[in-house]
């Protein structure tokens, strides 16, 4: 609908659970967003990020190899304009705050409904 003049944005999904990855990919219904990749840990995410140069990233916090907080820091260092939505459980607010401090833009609490996911992405993109 509104993707005429606005260019489409690339979305990368980072989560160690493939159920969540698929869930986000399937549920997101923002016309401007196009999923360009999914990573299951921080290290993979950084590599994929360099290759696909996404504009928007959804980021899990607890992951093997490299955790979400560190990954956020790396991604922002590569591209300071990237929009990052942390998607994690609310058990540890301190870690979520750390991730925002390192440069993530917002937080979405797991578990989430489709509506909540789309609202959060829409809100995130309103800044772009």
């Amino acid at each position: 609908m509104d993707d005429g003049p606005k260019r489409s944005l690339k979305l990368m999904i980072v989560d160690d659970s493939n159920i969540i990855r698929r869930r986000i990919e399937r549920s997101q219904q923002i016309a401007r967003l196009e999923v360009v990749g999914a990573a299951s840990n921080g290290r993979e995410a950084v590599e994929l990020f360099r290759r696909t140069q996404p504009d928007v990233v959804t980021m899990d916090l607890t992951m093997p190899e490299m955790d979400g907080v560190e990954c956020v820091q790396e991604l922002v260092a590569i591209n300071s304009k990237v929009l990052i939505l942390v998607v994690s459980a609310l058990a540890d607010k301190a870690t979520a705050v750390d991730a925002i401090e390192k440069g993530a833009n917002g937080f979405l609490c797991k578990p989430f409904t489709d509506r909540q996911l789309n609202d959060a992405l829409e809100e995130l993109l309103s800044e772009a």
């Binding site: 939505l85 609310l90 607010k93 301190a94 979520a96 705050v97 925002i100 401090e101 440069g103 833009n105 917002g106 937080f107 979405l108 609490c109 959060a120 809100e123 995130l124 800044e127």
Partner: peptide, 15 residues
């Protein structure tokens, strides 16, 4: 205070 932070999207992690 960081302009990057989306005010609405961090309300849930207010400790």
């Amino acid at each position: 205070w960081a302009e990057r932070t989306n005010e609405k999207l961090v309300k849930t992690i207010n400790p």
